[in-house]
């Protein structure tokens, strides 16, 4: 391992151990050290957003210069990004710019993301229709039936309202017992996996920060 990798690994392991110890052992020195490291992490995360945006800018500039497919959309993205960035910087100090910033959010981002969500409804409906054809198994059948029952028990029927037996019994049972218990089991497994992953990082087995 190179010296750079060794140093970064040592720093990462040390910081992780300090935060972990500060969480379990409520000594002032450990808690303060842990909070300080967390604060630094927050600052670095905020700065990383700026780097990420620059990265996004570089990627799309590259698409334009290389005349890749979708370069026109990259032009729109860069223009919108720079305009929004400028308005965001000006808004606190130049009040007339504030409505423009709100407008950019409400007129562009909000409806676009809501439309993507609506598109997801179509996608999931189509995927549910295709699921038995694509992957015919007992679990797929259970998946479809469960989804139909929950949907039927949640949404009102026209002119009828609640669906008898489904709305008052099946749907709550599925959502609050079966799904909740399954979700808990899955979440416990996920938590254990997260623990193991964290330990690998602490041991230096996984070094996403480099040095491998």
């Amino acid at each position: 391992m190179k010296l750079k990798g060794l140093f970064s690994t040592a720093v990462a392991v040390l910081c992780g151990l300090v935060v972990l110890a500060g969480y379990f052992v409520r000594l002032d020195i450990l808690v303060n050290a842990s909070n300080t490291l967390i604060t630094w992490a927050i600052l670095l995360t905020a700065f990383a957003i700026l780097l990420g945006i620059i990265n996004l800018l570089i990627v799309h500039v590259g698409k334009i210069t290389r005349k890749q497919k979708g370069g026109f959309y990259s032009i729109i993205l860069i223009f919108a990004m720079l305009a929004t960035f400028a308005i965001g910087l000006l808004a606190p100090h130049f009040p007339p710019a504030s409505p423009a910033f709100d407008f950019a959010f409400r007129a562009v981002q909000l409806p676009v993301e809501a439309s993507l969500m609506a598109l997801l409804a179509v996608t999931l409906t189509y995927a549910s229709i295709r699921l038995p054809r694509r992957r015919l198994s007992v679990f797929s059948v259970i998946f479809i039936i469960t989804g139909l029952l929950v949907l039927l028990g949640t949404a009102p029927l026209p002119f009828l309202g609640d669906t008898p037996l489904v709305s008052d019994t099946l749907r709550p049972t599925i959502a609050q017992v079966l799904a909740a218990s399954g979700a808990r089991g899955i979440l416990i497994g996920v938590a254990l996996g997260a623990l193991a992953t964290g330990l690998r990082v602490l041991f230096g087995a996984d070094r996403p920060y480099g040095g491998k």
Binding site: A121, T125, S128, I129, R130, L131, P132, R133, R134, L136, V141, I144, G147, L148, L151, L152, T154, A155, P156, L157, P158
Partner: peptide, 30 residues
């Protein structure tokens, strides 16, 4: 509320009918 109810009903019907047909086709193919 009304749009939610009608939309969900339409989705249920499509999923049920399409799913059954898809299952039959998959079973036949298998």
């Amino acid at each position: 509320w009304d749009s939610f109810g009608l939309g969900a009903l339409a989705a249920e019907i499509m999923i049920a009918v399409g799913g059954v047909l898809g299952a039959i086709m998959a079973w036949r193919a298998r």
